[in-house]
Simulated scan of single mutants.
Amino acid sequence: MKSKTNGLSILLFALSCLMAFSQYNEQDWEERDLWMKVPELMKLATIEKGDQVADIGCHEGYFTFHLSNQVGPLGKVYAVDIAEYRLTELKKHIKDRNVTNVEVVLGEYDDPNLPKGLLDVVVVMDTYHEMEDNLKILSHIKEALKPNGRLLILEKLKAHKIGKSRDEQTAGHTLSTNYVKEDLIKVGFSILKEVDDFGYWKKENDKQMWVLVATPKSE
């Protein structure tokens, strides 16, 4: 009886992990479009045709391909992740779609390995809470941006983690704006836009999405 119980627990844990990360798989992208409000994100970051942009924490490329369509053939997308298996899947999707304006980049835990001074926009979507060397990564992003470039960070704040410490929030795969704003200011960013009620992650009303858009402070 005990072995059956343990087996059931393992199965439930595996299913919960699969559900938690399903939004990153290609088969779930169409459903994700129903709640991610991609056109509004493009407007907030003012991403235009011909722009050079980066998608940090790209996974298999959900937002990468939206960015690819937005910047067009004269633009370029740097798709960054630290997990090689995700980038392997992304490369397959790029080949299947015959996409020519996406460059796949294997990042490091403290460095996204982006070109310096070339980017119009960097997007960090549901990934910032996973970063440990936040200030170092933000410094690299700042170096990669043009003087008037923009950094867009999107996160979800889970209701039961509101008011908790940063460690408690990140352990629960969530983060509030106040911690991120502190980081941005420390590194030398100015906050251009703040949206605290961008909608609900996967339409679950206990997971409020928020967006910050920042730019490097002028020297």
Rank of each mutant, 00 (worst) to 15 (best):
P73G: 00
R32V: 03
M19T: 12
V71K: 11
W35L: 03
I10S: 14
L44G: 00
V80Y: 03
H93A: 05
E60P: 05
L74C: 07
P73K: 10
S3K: 10
K37W: 08
F63W: 09
T100I: 05
K4W: 13
P73D: 08
R32Q: 01
I56G: 10
A45D: 06
K43A: 13
N6A: 04
L106A: 14
L67R: 02
R32W: 03
G72F: 09
L15Y: 12
E60I: 00
K4N: 13
Y24R: 11
L106N: 14
D33A: 07
L106M: 15
H66E: 14
L18Q: 12
V71I: 13
R97L: 01
R32L: 06
A83L: 11
K91L: 12
F21I: 14
K49A: 06
L90M: 11
V104N: 11
W35K: 04
D96V: 06
E26C: 06
A20I: 01
G57S: 01
F21H: 14
N25C: 10
L106H: 14
S68F: 00
A79K: 03
S16F: 13
G107M: 09
N98Q: 00
R32A: 04
I82H: 04
S22E: 02
C58K: 09
E103Y: 08
E89A: 10
Q23V: 13
L34A: 13
L87Q: 04
L8T: 07
A54N: 01
M36V: 06
D96E: 15
G50Q: 01
R97W: 03
C58R: 09
